[in-house]
Write a protein that binds this DNA or RNA. Structure first.
Lengths: 242, 242
DNA sequence: ACAAAAGTGTTGCCCTTACACCCATGC
DNA sequence: GCATGGGTGTAAGGGCAACACTTTTGT
């Protein structure tokens, strides 16, 4: 537990006091990684092996190195804990309630990440050391710290994204049917959508295209689509700003 | 300057290492406070009296106390430096480039704030100690740290807000004319708007109403409007989440 | 043949946009 | 009486929501 001398340091004008005089919080990154498999929207969680919250499930994440940009810290932690790199990752929100970690003041910069379903399959293999599992977002176990709140906020962000930037396909494998894509939207937004309107709207955006291939199943085969390279570039550009 | 032992601390599984073993960055809050006066969108800046960036203009802000929530730190810093409380304040983004502060690793949680024009007038009186001034966002001086980048990002956020949540009135005094409100939108969005369409759209949202009073000026008097209590509650509810 | 999911068009409504003139006041 | 900003309505087009039947396969 970090010793806290309450309010001994009421702040003054910018830089009036030497920076070294201020007590320093710990800073972590936590990543909410979504994917969509077996008809479920899922989040990756890791079971903690040490106190506090030993045995509880928690978001992947960890301490930020002192010389490391935040985005890089998030990418690194995710790589270390899932073996996956090069995925969609953006800053979500910073949670800094003084009581959120029993060890003392720990501020966490939460990140929002999306992984395709096929990459998620591979991930599971890499789970050798740490116990990592995908959980249905709507059926989570007891979580460590304030991680449930963080996930709920990430879910709100995901809904916003799907509503007006067509990124649903990032959750799916490279090739997918329109029905699968519609199911993603329905599960994430928690509402039923009209098939004809959905198809028209998605196709009008020009971000996915017919691959020419078909998926054969129990009934009439379905056309397989994949997203266009333009769509990915467009999103990268949008996200480049802050 | 903070001593940094590069990568001596490659992270491991959650909590595997004692939290105390990690070097701690400093954490600050910085506030981008907007108002609209004399036909200009303005940001409040404070002139630094100490190194680094002595004499440069910078965003109001300062170190987060060890036992203080982030939102409260932002509100406190703003109060200490402007004497104003109870204004619109929300978290913007966390900037953590290791090079952003020459003193060492300083992570800043940036906040986005809006102040009404009449409150902004009063603020100026409270500027006894620190040199604080309002600057046109489109004509800023050289800024300390990465504060120019932070302001640019806040401006993007402000544009989003005006585009689909009608918060423009928060920048204006309690009573205002529709022409004034339109000017706010035009200056923020940097585009010319159609007078009739603008009025129809704003009034359709039901967030402002005719006060029954008139403003007399050089020409035909203009109706004065004020926002409805419902509008404020609605926004508070929206903002309650994260 | 039948069960099951894939696929496909049209219509009405609303919201958005474009656009031009009269009104009330100060000087 | 004239200059100036305040104030108002309408028509066309585009996007969105509602709605039901045919097609293709596996069994």
């Amino acid at each position: 537990m970090i010793a806290v001398s309450k309010s001994s340091l009421s702040a003054q004008e910018n830089g009036a006091k030497s920076a070294d005089a201020y007590p320093r919080p710990l800073v972590t990154v936590d990543i909410v990684l979504f994917t969509f498999t077996e008809g479920e929207l899922r989040v990756l969680l890791i079971q903690r092996k040490h106190p506090p919250f030993e045995g509880y499930w928690a978001l992947p994440g960890g301490f930020v190195n002192i010389d490391e940009p935040l985005d890089q810290a998030a990418a690194r932690e995710l790589f270390e804990e899932t073996g996956v790199s090069n995925i969609y990752l953006e800053q979500l929100y910073t949670f800094g309630d003084p009581q959120r970690d029993p060890r003392g003041r720990v501020i966490t910069v939460a990140y929002f990440a999306i992984m395709s379903a096929d990459a998620a399959e591979k991930t599971r293999a890499g789970d050798d050391a740490a116990a990592a599992r995908w959980f249905n977002v709507y059926d989570l176990p007891s979580l460590a710290f304030d991680h449930e709140r963080i996930i709920k906020y990430a879910l709100v962000r995901l809904r916003y994204k799907l509503e007006y930037t067509a990124l649903g396909f990032l959750l799916l494998p490279e090739e997918f049917t329109l029905s699968e894509l519609q199911q993603v939207y329905e599960v994430v937004l928690q509402e039923r959508l009209d098939k004809r309107n959905f198809r028209r709207k998605i196709l009008a955006q020009g971000i996915i295209e017919d691959s020419g291939r078909l998926r054969y199943g129990d009934h009439r085969p379905a056309k397989l689509y994949h997203f266009t390279a333009a769509a990915i570039e467009l999103e990268k550009a949008r996200r480049r700003f802050p």
